[in-house]
Amino acid sequence: MARSGIFEIKGIGDGLLVTVKSGAEWQAVHTALRNHFSERAAFFKGARVALDLGTMPLSAKELEALRADLERLGIELWAVEAESPKTVKAARALGLATRVPRPEPGKTKPRRAAQPLGEEAILVRGALRSGMRVEFAGHVVVLGNVHAGAEVVAGGNIIVWGRLRGLAHAGAWGNREAVVCALELSPTQLRIADVIAAPPAEQAAPQPEIASLKGNQVVAEPWDSSP
């Protein structure tokens, strides 16, 4: 295991895992990583590296810059694990994996799944386009459209202030009370807990709807504002 002030490197089954200390400043991390690897370039050449960024919010541009630097050293950045939705979105946009399998047994459970479902939520602004994926242990609120080919996965509820045309999975870790609602509910596929539903082919004029589990069926009903 190698240590520096702001990151930690250890070997995992599938290459190296770099864990960035929380609170570190990205520019400093980037420079330190580049130096660390280039000083030992011959040793690290051909390595596969995964990054655990914790809560640090990064743009695709910043990730891409690091990937390019590592690429020049013959090192492949293949995965980025993060708790910041911005970073996860950026990593996915760059085609990077966002989950790193850990070797030690007992530690392999996905961290987020193990968390109790709280009332935490994230807000996603703007359209989610094909190929984008948002995953969160709490609720997910999207202020914009979810296009066909995009995926939203939430431990709790999913609320789309816009058209939902992609895939939505609410209660993804088993919460059967979870709901999905959207101004226009026309998903490619809808999942609540372990139930998977494909919406009916014919649909009336779009209107705000809320989908929930009734027994083992996903049922969508028009949004009724009266109590």
């Binding site: 743009s59 979105k89 989610l128 094909s130 296009h147």
Partner: peptide, 15 residues
């Protein structure tokens, strides 16, 4: 159109 949507997302991500 589906692939164009994906590409537009990547273009946005690259700012």
């Amino acid at each position: 159109v589906r692939d164009a949507d994906r590409i537009i997302g990547l273009i946005e991500a690259e700012e």
